[in-house]
Every structure is written in C-alpha cells, then in structure tokens.
Write a protein that binds this DNA or RNA. Structure first.
Lengths: 197, 197
DNA sequence: CCCTTGCGTAAGCACGTGCTTACAAAGCTA
DNA sequence: TAGCTTTGTAAGCACGTGCTTACGCAAGGG
C-alpha cells in the first residue's frame, strides 16, 4: 500500500520537499529572491542543499512554485472589497511572517531581481490588480487599480526596506485610514483630469 | 600656477575622478547599487577599476558621494509646489537618464540593498519628504508626505521594475492627473479618519 | 641624465554564489 | 542474506564579486 510511513519520518521525500517549500516561502518573503541563498533555505529546512536541486531543479523553479502557492492564498480567503485594507494591514503589521501576507512581501523584496524573476512577480501583481479593478466602475479602472497596488507596494518599501520615519513606526490604523479614504476616492471615480484631458 | 594641464589630459587625476563619479551616477540610477558592479563603472568611465578604490576607497563610499550630489539637484531647481509633479514626471518619462530625475531612480533601484546603503537611501527620501511636508497644513503632515513619496516610489517600481500593464505603458499625463488630484486631497487635509478616530 | 613622485594597469586574492558529483546509508524485494 | 532503488550527505567546481598588490610609465627637478 502506502509504504507505511512510520512517524519519525526520516527519509520521507514528500515531507522534505514540503519543508523546503515552506522554508523557501518564508525566506523569500523575508529577504527577497536574491538575498535568500539556497544554503540558507536548505539550512532552515534542516536538509542538505543538494536536495533542493534534486526536488526543484533550480532556485528559480523553486521560486516559481512558492509564488504560485502564495499568490492564491490571500486572494481566495478575502472578499474583494476587503482586499485593499487586508493587504495593507498585512503589509503594515507583521512584515510578511504569516502565510497570508507573504505574497506582497515577497513581491516587495524581489522586485529588482531582473529578467525572469520579474515575470513571476508580475503574475502576483496581476492577480491583485484584477481584483482591485473589479471595485471601480471608471473607464480606466485597470489603471486605477495598478495605481492603488503601486501605493501599497511603495508604502511597504518605505516602511520595511527604507525604514523612513515617521512612516515606518506610524500607527497602522492612522495610515490605513488615510490611504483607504484616498484610494476609495481614486477607485470610486475621481475626476479623471486636472489641467489636461 | 595650476601646473598647466595641456589638454590631451591623459594622466589627470581630477578628470578621471570626475569621470568615475559620473559613470557611477549613471549606472547606480540604471541598475541600482547591487547590480552596478565596480568593473562596469570603471569600464564606462574608461579607466581601470583599481582607480575607483584609490579615489573613493570603497564602492559604498562612492555611492555615498553620488547620492549626496544627486539629492540636491532636483530639490534646488524646482519650487516646492511643483516638486510632486516634477518628480512624478521624471519617474514616468525617461527612466532616470537625465541628471535631474536620477535621485529617485537611484533610490528606486537600490532600495533593497540592506544595512548601510539604506542609510544613504533614507537621506534622499528625507530631503524629498521635508519639502513635500511643507505643502500640507494637517497635523500629521509629515506622515502624509511620506505616504505621497511612497506612492511615487511604488509607481516607479511598478513601471520600471515590475513592468506591470497597463501602468507601464500608460500615458504620463493620465497617470499624473489621477495621482496629483488624489495626492492633492491627501496633502490638503483629507478627513483624517474613516471608521475609527 | 638620473631619480623621485604620482597616475595608470594587469594580475590575482578571498569569498559567496548556484549548482554538481561521488558516495554512504536506509528500506524494500527476493 | 544479497541486491536494487531511494533518500541523504560532504566535498567541490565554475564563476562573479569587492578589493589589493606589484609593477610600468610619464613628468618634472636636482
């Protein structure tokens, strides 16, 4: 039958693969693609780094699987009209520790890892933007959604990476109130022009 | 007097130093701190890489000098109330080619270069935020300025690094209109609260 | 004319990276 | 027990990085 895995579970390929995936998800979210080394990932998973290549082929492929899993998680568990605030609070509170808010944190820190990594990164942002775009009824709602997502990204950057004060230590509630009201106006259909048209 | 530098100007320390600085400024703006290697910088300057270390000591020190020069440039040449739009258009148009808009482009691409680079990066953003904050009369105007700057940063990220569509190829005028009107409301004193207070 | 001074260069060092390989050992089948 | 497959490991390779060192060479004064 199922080969009766005892329970001490040494020598369990499925489990080690899973542990590698989890360790990678955590480290990618914490440090981004480039700064998360395969040695660190293997260490956190408690296995030899050679196994990472046996099970995933390459670091890039591993990143791809992580992204695929992470992207869907928050998107499926939160209704569209709460997504904006949920994502923002995920970014503001813990810095990507919990699995929910890992997608944006990973995006945040892997954004400059050029070429092919950018494709995976673009995939997450596409998912988020699609949902955000559904909230607006303006003709250029897709652009507005991109701008909203950009703001979240920028705020995350400033807080987590740059550490800019006073934003970095600001009260999440205060930030959230300012941003959501400004973005609400944006998405609900702000006057599309100012000086030009 | 001044040692009569002929004009073929080989073996001119001042000039090579200047060329290194200019090449570094360009490459840091184009690729960010990490991805701009000392070999590339020296090559673009047309000199040996060892000179980079003779004249600047380390790559970090060179970055510091570049940042110091770049930061002041746009800030001094544009009046405060035009800074927001100027910075945004600098980011939207050319991707940091011209010296004016290099500061934000450098910031943009060096943002995740951890530890001590972050300090230099924070210095630029502080300068920008200070000017932006002077535009608002709200009590938390500094926070609002940080949020405005964050948005610029995020938009730059999405366009230049992520390449997210439709934002990446959107008309600068359209983007600018949306952002400035939303940010105008933010800085002019938006209702500070929504659900809480 | 030598010889000190300072600019410029080629070569290399030490280290961290992603990835590979040769091998040990566990577990199953016979 | 013998043999085969699967899982794990230690060692190392190839390469790119920031940085250093030993040297060539122009220039100018005694």
């Amino acid at each position: 039958m199922g080969t009766t895995v005892s329970e001490g579970q040494r020598r369990d390929a499925r489990n080690t693969r899973r542990r590698l995936l989890e360790a990678a998800a955590a480290l990618f979210a914490e440090r981004g693609y480039e700064r998360a080394t395969v040695r660190d990932i293997a260490d956190r998973a408690g296995v030899n780094q050679a196994l990472l290549f046996r099970y995933f082929g390459s670091k890039r492929a591993l990143f791809g699987e992580v992204i695929a899993h992470n992207g869907e998680e928050q998107l499926r568990t939160t209704p569209p009209h709460e997504l904006l605030e949920a994502a923002l609070r995920g970014l503001l509170g813990h810095g990507g520790r919990e699995p929910d808010s890992r997608a944006l944190a990973t995006l945040l820190r892997s954004v400059d890892s050029g070429d092919e990594i950018g494709t995976a990164v673009r995939a997450i942002s596409d998912d988020y933007a699609r949902v955000l775009a559904s909230l607006s009824s303006a003709d250029n709602h897709e652009l507005r959604a991109d701008l909203a997502l950009s703001w979240l990204l920028g705020i995350g950057m400033m807080r987590v990476l740059v550490g800019k004060e006073p934003l970095a230590d600001a009260d999440p509630d205060e930030v959230c109130a300012l941003v959501t009201s400004a973005l609400g106006a944006l998405l609900d259909g702000l006057p599309a022009a100012d000086g030009r048209r």
